[in-house]
C-alpha cells in the first residue's frame, strides 16, 4: 500500500513538470494551430538562465537574498527573460511566415528549435552543468511511513498547481480569457468581433515560454544537472501529454501531463523500467483510438 502511495507521489512530481511544459505547447497550438517545436528549447534556455543567475558573481544572488530568495530571483528572472525570448521568437521566426501557411510555420519552428539548442551549446558548452549545491534549498520532510520528500519538491508541486490554477482561471473565467478562447475557436470571426489579435499573441507567446522557463529552473533545482539538449526529452513527453489530454485545451494539457507522469511512475515502479516507454505509448495509442481528440479534447467541426 505504501509503495503504491509513494509511486503516486513520484508520478505526480514527474507529471507536474510535464504539465507545465505541456501548457506552453497547448496555448500556442490553441491559438496558432502551430506545434511550437522550439518550446522544449525555451524550457532549456530558461533552465540555463536560472543557472546563470545563481552562479554569477560567485553566487551573489544566493548570498544576498538567501537560498529561497535566490530561488525566487532565479525563477522570476528566467520567466521574464524567456517570456521576452518567446516574444522575440514569434517576431523573428513565426510572424514573417504566418501567411505562407502551416507547413512553413512548422519548418520554421523546427529551425528555431535547432538554433536555440545549438546556441545554448555554443554559449554554455556541450557538457553537463550542475546547479550550485549552495543555491539549492535543502531539507526534506517525512510524508508517510518512511517516505521522504524534499521540501523543494513539495514547493515545486504547489507552485506549479497554483500557476496552473491561475492560468486556468484567466483563460476560462475572465473576459480576456474569453477573447483568447474565441481566438482559438475562430480567428477571423474573433477579429471581426473586435478582438485584438496582436494582444492575444503577445499573451500566448509570453506566458507559454515563461511557464516553460519556470519548469526549467525547477527542473535544474530538483535534478541539478542541465545540458543543452535537456528540452528534447521533456519536449517529447510534454507533447505526448498534450496529445493525451487534447491538444489546444489547457486543462487537457494539465491532465495529460499528470496522467503521463502517473502512468510512468506506476509502470516503472511496479512492473519494469526497461519497458516503461513502450507501455506509455501503447496506452497513448489506445486512448487515441478510443478518443481521437484526446481525453478532454473537444470535437473540432470540419470547416467547410
Amino acid at each position: 500500500m505504501q509503495v503504491l502511495l509513494e509511486q503516486l507521489v513520484n508520478g505526480l512530481t514527474i507529471g507536474t513538470f510535464y504539465a507545465l511544459v505541456a501548457m506552453g505547447y497547448s496555448m500556442v497550438y490553441g491559438i496558432m494551430k502551430l506545434i511550437n517545436f522550439a518550446h522544449g528549447d525555451l524550457f532549456t534556455l530558461g533552465s540555463y538562465l536560472g543557472y546563470t543567475l545563481l552562479v554569477i558573481g560567485g553566487g551573489w544572488v544566493t548570498t544576498t537574498f538567501g537560498v529561497w530568495g535566490g530561488v525566487v530571483v532565479a525563477v522570476l528572472g528566467a520567466m521574464l527573460g524567456i517570456g521576452i525570448a518567446g516574444l522575440l521568437l514569434e517576431r523573428v521566426a513565426y510572424a514573417p511566415v504566418y501567411k505562407a501557411g502551416r507547413l512553413p510555420l512548422v519548418v520554421s519552428a523546427l529551425g528555431a528549435s535547432i538554433f536555440i539548442s545549438n546556441g545554448i551549446m555554443a554559449v554554455w558548452g556541450p557538457r553537463f552543468q550542475a546547479y550550485p549545491a549552495t543555491s539549492i534549498p535543502s531539507g526534506s520532510i517525512l510524508l508517510f511511513g518512511d517516505f521522504r520528500i524534499t521540501i523543494l519538491k513539495l514547493v515545486t508541486i504547489l507552485v506549479a498547481f497554483a500557476l496552473m490554477a491561475l492560468i486556468y482561471f484567466i483563460v476560462e473565467k475572465t473576459l480576456f480569457g474569453a477573447a483568447v478562447r474565441a481566438m482559438a475557436l475562430d480567428r477571423e470571426t474573433a477579429t471581426l468581433m473586435g478582438i485584438d489579435f496582436r494582444k492575444i499573441i503577445l499573451f500566448v507567446f509570453f506566458v507559454g515560454p515563461a511557464l516553460g522557463a519556470l519548469a526549467g529552473v525547477f527542473a535544474g533545482l530538483n535534478y541539478t544537472r542541465i545540458i543543452f539538449n535537456l528540452g528534447w526529452s521533456y519536449g517529447l513527453k510534454a507533447f505526448t501529454a498534450v496529445i493525451l489530454g487534447g491538444i489546444g485545451n489547457i486543462p487537457g494539457a494539465m491532465l495529460g501531463g499528470i496522467m503521463l507522469g502517473l502512468m510512468e511512475a506506476l509502470f516503472e515502479g511496479l512492473v519494469s523500467g526497461a519497458w516503461k516507454n513502450v507501455f506509455v505509448f501503447i496506452i497513448l495509442i489506445i486512448i487515441l483510438i478510443v478518443r481521437p481528440t484526446g481525453l478532454i479534447g473537444e470535437k473540432i467541426a470540419e470547416k467547410v
Partner: peptide, 16 residues
C-alpha cells in the same frame, strides 16, 4: 532491470 537514460526523475525506481 534498465532505467531510461536521459531522464531526470528516477524516483519511481528508487521507491522500488
Amino acid at each position: 532491470d534498465a532505467i531510461t537514460p536521459g531522464e531526470s526523475d528516477y524516483s519511481a525506481v528508487i521507491s522500488q
